[in-house]
Write a protein that binds this DNA or RNA. Structure first.
Lengths: 348, 348
DNA sequence: CAACACTGCTCAATCGATGAAGCAACAATT
DNA sequence: AATTGTTGCTTCATCGATTGAGCAGTGTTG
């Protein structure tokens, strides 16, 4: 394809000259509205063939500059290091492309400054929408977008200045806790109070999950030990250190745990393995998030899988049909058995 | 920030009018070369303040159209569903940003058509480089880029028309196999031939790993059973079905396995759990790839971690200092012990 | 045969940012 | 007084694609 001109890119003007016609005819043909512009099909065919031969690729910068809509949609994501965010990104890309939108995704590593910088950069690229996933300060991003007349949306963590799509953390956590307690009763003879570990006490999701955790304990009338609510952050090391500190402070080791994310679960499993406390009796466990290998660890670990497809359906529902203020849309999560079959949420 | 004009975006012309100056002065100030263009610092300050107040964001489409370099770098990635690709994407983004490049990443789900389409779209956005990660047909992408005068690079899977950066699959696989065989001897009393599972026989990496697998067997003088080389694809289900088929065809079940990726390992672990063959004697295992939870499964599973940072250093070395033809750069992988400490590659 | 419609194109302005060239005003030098 | 230099700007063409307006040429109608 065009090996005589090594570097210079073919433009519609080059094609126009080759076809002996005008750039505007070429443009009309190549963007498909040549019928509307009354170009003959002979000319259309000739131009199409030439474009093919020359390996022509439109210059989006020029095209977008002229057009009113960019068809670019941005997403900010904290990390790529777990299945949840990976799945969000992959589904988002697919759904965006289905709508003829061009997705731009960037990873901001839970860094508030990077988030803001990334949002500004996306605005420079004329995104029409910006989806902030798990952003530390979603309202700040909504403000920036709002000032530029660009729509924004929060995913995973809610904000107050844009529509937010999140998991139903309270109900999910309550059901997950209930299941762990049932396992506790089955394996230990009695439902013993659980330990909660992972996440930040200040973030909405963690707060809601703790609330669900408490509710499930209350439902069966057993107390929650306040010292066993360890919202120590998400990093695996934090979870590991918290458990180590707890084990040193108390004589007994927890018999059951609610782990707030797979990231925290990494640290928990490491501690369980390294501490040597659970050689013959593994703890009853549950995790608010899903990972295929984690699901195979130990003997049964209850897992909640956040309904990524459902959440992104809600996101694109807002994008396709407009938002209603700063609404909060809660999507019920899904429970997973150890054979990987998805079980519909029994609570709904 | 400018709530009276809700939708229209501020341009340098708006700022010029507000400042009582020309658009070109505004441009010079905002892109930082106002000293070169002899703008007074008073005016510079005034313009900067106004831009701040109005929440001005440059229109990249316009800017890039005018400039010669786009500073955009593209990456194609097959999936986001494992730590390896997640880590590649995250590292790539960080390193691109460090160089003032804007990374655009897109996931092509191992679909050759999508790969080509994505490459074309990236060219439309004027990428300066395109990194094809694990592409099914990297040479096709190199051709497309070459025709547009855009540099391309292959990562993870090699091609013949652009520089390729890959893991040293042969040496890595040989060492991994050696380690599994050592464990086999320790646990089973003798080094028994292993089974190889996962990947496509046609792809370069799998072929090289099989070669390393054979070499390690030859090193200690034990034979490889050809029926135990199961390059059944990457999907977990494929691995699971292959093992099931094998178990039905033979009376004995493999005592040790070399698994070609974490994705395949998912299926292998599922089969091990579901088939019920390994209740008291788990197989000796190794996996060419790393995952934190997989590392905790069973009793010891040897894992090779591909050196993502090293590979991307090589990628950006080519981008920063130019390529030398279609060179093949092989990066030694790294071995991981079950306590997560990285052990330097003993082979180098 | 004039009036009008239709076909198949071309022209030229435009999107926003950039930067070479140029220009006015004043200072310094010969 | 004439020349040269310096400062601090402005003007304008340009990047490539898009699109409203316009214009020949042919056909159709009253």
């Amino acid at each position: 394809m065009n090996q005589d001109r090594p570097t210079k890119k073919t433009t519609i003007y080059d094609l126009a000259e080759l076809a002996g016609t005008s750039a505007s005819a070429v443009s009309a043909v190549l963007n498909g509205n040549w019928k509307k512009r009354r170009i003959s099909s002979q000319l259309a065919e000739k131009i199409t063939r030439l474009a093919e031969e020359q390996g022509y690729a439109i210059n989006m910068q020029a095209s977008l500059l002229r057009r009113e809509k960019s068809k670019i949609i941005g997403m900010i994501v904290p990390k790529y290091d777990n299945r949840y965010f990976g799945s969000i990104v992959e589904t988002f890309e697919t759904m965006a492309r289905e709508r003829g939108l061009f997705p731009i995704i960037t990873c901001t590593r839970r860094d508030p400054e990077l988030e803001v910088e990334a949002a500004r950069t996306m605005l420079s690229y004329q995104v029409e929408w910006l989806v902030s996933t798990g952003a530390t300060d979603p309202d700040r991003i909504s403000d920036i977008c709002g000032a530029a007349g660009v729509g924004s949306l929060n995913l995973d963590l809610p904000g107050t200045k844009a529509p937010s799509v999140i998991s139903d953390n309270f109900t999910g956590a309550r059901e997950l806790t209930r299941r762990i307690l049932v396992n506790s009763e089955r394996k230990l003879g009695a439902a013993r109070p659980l330990l909660f570990i992972g996440g930040r006490g200040s973030d909405h999701n963690t707060a809601e999950r703790v609330r669900g955790f408490r509710a499930a304990h209350a439902d069966i009338g057993i107390p929650v030990d306040e010292r066993h609510i360890l919202t120590c952050g998400y990093a695996p090391e934090k979870a590991e250190m918290s458990l180590q500190a707890l084990a040193m402070a108390e004589r007994e080791v927890p018999s059951g745990m609610f782990v707030n994310s797979t990231i925290s679960l990494e640290g928990v499993m490491r501690w369980i393995k390294r501490s040597g406390h659970y050689v013959d009796h593994s703890p009853v466990m549950g995790c608010f998030d899903w990972d295929p290998f984690a699901a195979l660890l130990g003997d049964e670990i209850e897992m909640v899988r956040q309904d990524v497809q459902g959440m992104l359906n809600a996101v694109f529902e807002v994008i396709d049909h407009g938002a209603r203020g700063a609404s909060l849309i809660e999507i019920p999560p899904v429970f997973v058995d150890s054979n990987y079959a998805l079980i519909n949420d029994p609570m709904v």
